[in-house]
C-alpha cells in the first residue's frame, strides 16, 4: 500500500515540477520582449556600439588630411603577431634637416587580435579603434589596409 502511495506521490510531484518549469516558459510566451537581446540584422541602421568597442585599428585624420603618426615604429614593435608593418621614408624638412616620416602604415586586419597594445603604446596617440565590426569581405587582400591616407601629412606640432 505504502509503495503505491509513494509511487503516486512521485508522479504528482514530478508533474508538478514540470508545470513549474512551464510556468516560467509560459510567462515569457506572453512577454516576448523581455527575452530578446538584439534584433541584429534589422536594427543595423540604429545600432550604436560602445565607444570603447575594439572594431579595427584606424588612424584618425583631420580635415586637412593630417595625421599624428611620426613613423617611430613603436606600434610595430609592440604588436604581438606582426599585424603592423611600418614603411618609413626620409624627408627633408623646411629647414633642410633630414627626418624620418611614415610612408605606409600597413595594418593586416585579418591577423589583428584586438589587444590594443598598439593604440595604448603609441607615443603620439596616432591610432584609435573604430566601432566598425562588419569586416567580412570577399577577397582576402582587402583585409590588408594602409592606415595613412594617400597624400596625408604629419600634423603640425607633433614630434
Amino acid at each position: 500500500m505504502r509503495s503505491i502511495i509513494n509511487y503516486l506521490k512521485e508522479i504528482i510531484l514530478g508533474v508538478w515540477s514540470l508545470l513549474k518549469g512551464m510556468k516560467v516558459t509560459g510567462s515569457y510566451f506572453f512577454r516576448p520582449g523581455t527575452i530578446i537581446t538584439q534584433k541584429y540584422p534589422s536594427n543595423r541602421k540604429d545600432l550604436v556600439m560602445f565607444d570603447r568597442f575594439k572594431g579595427e585599428v584606424v588612424m584618425p585624420h583631420n580635415e586637412k588630411n593630417e595625421h599624428k603618426c611620426t613613423g617611430c615604429g613603436i606600434c610595430e614593435l609592440n604588436c604581438p603577431n606582426g599585424t603592423i608593418e611600418i614603411i618609413s621614408k626620409t624627408i627633408i624638412t623646411e629647414d633642410g634637416k633630414k627626418k624620418r616620416a611614415i610612408d605606409k602604415h600597413i595594418y593586416r586586419l585579418g591577423m589583428c587580435t584586438f589587444c590594443a597594445l598598439c593604440v595604448k603604446t603609441c607615443p603620439s596617440n596616432a591610432l584609435a579603434f573604430s566601432q566598425k565590426f562588419e569586416h567580412a569581405v570577399f577577397n582576402r587582400a582587402l583585409l590588408i589596409k594602409t592606415l595613412n591616407k594617400p597624400g596625408s601629412q604629419l600634423m603640425k606640432g607633433v614630434e
Binding site: S17, L18, V24
Partner: peptide
C-alpha cells in the same frame, strides 16, 4: 524552477 527542480 526551470531546471533544478525538474524531475527528468
Amino acid at each position: 524552477q526551470l531546471l533544478t527542480g525538474n524531475v527528468i
